[in-house]
Design a protein around this nucleic acid. Structure first.
Lengths: 205, 205, 205, 205
DNA sequence: CATGAATGAGTATTCATTCAT
DNA sequence: AATGAATGAATACTCATTCAT
């Protein structure tokens, strides 16, 4: 029932007398551990050790473990993809972003599949919900015509979340093994009925 | 699955001197707790209490907490839905099964979204993977014609997993609020490109 | 700022597999430590160590450190002194009880001066208040005639509390060095105006 | 003295580059906190914050938390009451001084009941003892005729200490609720046998 | 002279697990 | 077959204190 210990996260060298750097080191250690073991499995001790810092500094800089995690789960830079990508390109663009295995730890730590995997606590659920609401329920839905725009937007999120969970967390054979282009092709087809102008077909079942 | 205390799980009466029954009581208590609080939140003490049994019996009968959970996460009866439902009806049928909030605890405990939410541990990941392999990668893929059958089958699983996560765990506004019929309609449309005889259109993008 | 380490409390030998005895050992260790170091300075670890028991047993048997302390601060047997001693003998009788240096740890742990010395926490304040209310404000006052019975009764408590604080905690030269008989003589004289039938003298100042 | 948050202690503005003033600010903050929360509840961090100073300055100026507290617990100005008040007026005069809730923080911080309530540590015990020795065992006793002068003087201290503990710390019903005049009347009567020229009656019991 | 960064030891509490009965 | 006692390691968090700038 313990998380994987492969892919060890080496303790960073001591980063003496530099508050900003220490804070960042803690955050970044937290993200690495979250990405590797899941939100539910990070302890302040491990974070401090991985950051090469004293455990008490977590409280100096963040006030509580929870506050540290909340900050670690926030994406480091705002994502304009949903706002700016042409609708037709959106599905596979988002997919590639979500599945990029070379993404830095902070991106992986704040990915949807990481969040869903840590959905055992209200904290994480809230963060995940807010992120979907902002990106999909609000932003993407605003770009969709026709009925049920919010629902259709969230279904895009659901598909992407499901895929990244199966590929990144669970590791099912076909999805984990597929190449991105093949996946992108199918995702585009599945999403097409949601984003193409609904027109008269909304009523059809 | 959110840790709520509303829906209390009453301690079962003492089940003295009946090994099989005690074992079963532990399993069933574990399932109820998993369904209510998530895999990551069950303690052997709570399970024992809910089963009206002694905590040490977990070890007598299962050897470890982990082993108990593994068994509790297995579905109690084989599901013939994937094998027997006409392909065209399969998506919404599976969706209704996955989202039924009145399903018995053992079904909810072993649901995909419960598993994904507990994906912080290798144990749970393995169980989830095996279940998708059996139901989708193997069984459903076997019923699909054309290229990439396994991948297309797993994409159905991904969509359903994503939807039930967002509805049952995260609680996003539109998906959590939608009525099942509306959801089913859209799911059918999304899945259609995957299960309709692919014919010549597999190559088209 | 650390309490005295003289008069070491030896760790009791392991008291295996006897719940009642272990519970009692914890209580009694707690009382010894309270009597020596004050309520504010007992840690669950020290109590467990002094009791020769595991720290977790504090929680098994008492639920929390606070609950253990509350129980440890309770007198072990009800005191009928105030109810049954003739009024004229009461002051020196109570004094002797309060100052007996050979009293067992449980009596010393629950003494007024110990409580007052730990008055930094609401918990201890409440216990002290309740004890004085029961013994003096209610019981003794009920036996007093004339005006201000409650106040006069509490003044008896105040004097006794003050004396035992100065003798037992602070250790002032004269009070700590005095023999009990001399002390008793003066206490009787001080208390006399409070317990003698007030008659017409209440008005006099 | 009960840890209340009502009566908040505002952080003083920055007191830059004035060693003496900073030292004084720390002392005075310490006194305010002691008076409000009790000796056992002051942390160097809180003191520093309340003084608007850096926590490390506690060590620069005092060497240790303990040394700061020792100094904070000393009365700021010598009290001539015991030396100069006519014996007959002394009891109620001292009582009013001890119970004045509007006394400045430094007086309240160094009051006997505050000291007794912090008697869990040797440090505080020593301070309390020294203060009683100076004021009562030596000074007051010097003004008393007859036998056992030191003991009788300390008994006055004991009574006053007891009363202020029950009124200010424990809060027993009658003593905490009594008005000062009533209290003073009874205190005078109790103390009378101690300070009136004892003459031949010392032997009588 | 003053600051703020860093440290190590301490706190209460919980949990999976084993042992004796 | 079952019970309840006991254990050890882990967790989040706090505090007095020291060090480098």
């Amino acid at each position: 029932m313990r998380p994987v210990d492969d892919e060890a996260i080496p303790p960073a060298g001591p980063r003496r007398r530099d508050a900003a750097a220490t804070r960042e080191a803690l955050l970044s250690a937290a993200r690495a551990l979250i990405a590797r073991d899941g939100v539910g499995h990070v302890s302040t001790r491990d974070v401090a050790a991985a950051a090469g810092a004293n455990q008490a500094l977590v409280y100096r800089y963040f006030g509580s473990k929870e506050a540290l995690l909340v900050e670690a789960l926030q994406p480091t830079e705002p994502d304009r993809t949903i706002a700016e990508t042409p609708l037709a390109d959106l599905p596979h663009t988002l997919l590639r972003r979500a599945l990029d295995p070379d993404a830095p730890a902070d991106v992986r730590a704040s990915s949807m599949s990481t969040l869903v995997a840590g959905a055992g606590t209200e904290l994480v659920r809230t963060i995940a919900r807010d992120r979907i609401h902002a990106g999909f329920t609000t932003q993407l839905a605003g770009r969709l015509d026709g009925d049920d725009a919010e629902l259709r937007a969230e279904l895009v999120a659901a598909l992407l979340t499901g895929i990244s969970s199966l590929r990144g967390q669970i590791g099912t054979r076909a999805i984990a093994g597929a190449d991105l282009d093949a996946l992108a092709t199918y995702v585009d087809r599945m999403v097409a009925p949601l984003i193409t102008p609904a027109g008269s077909d909304t009523a059809a079942s």
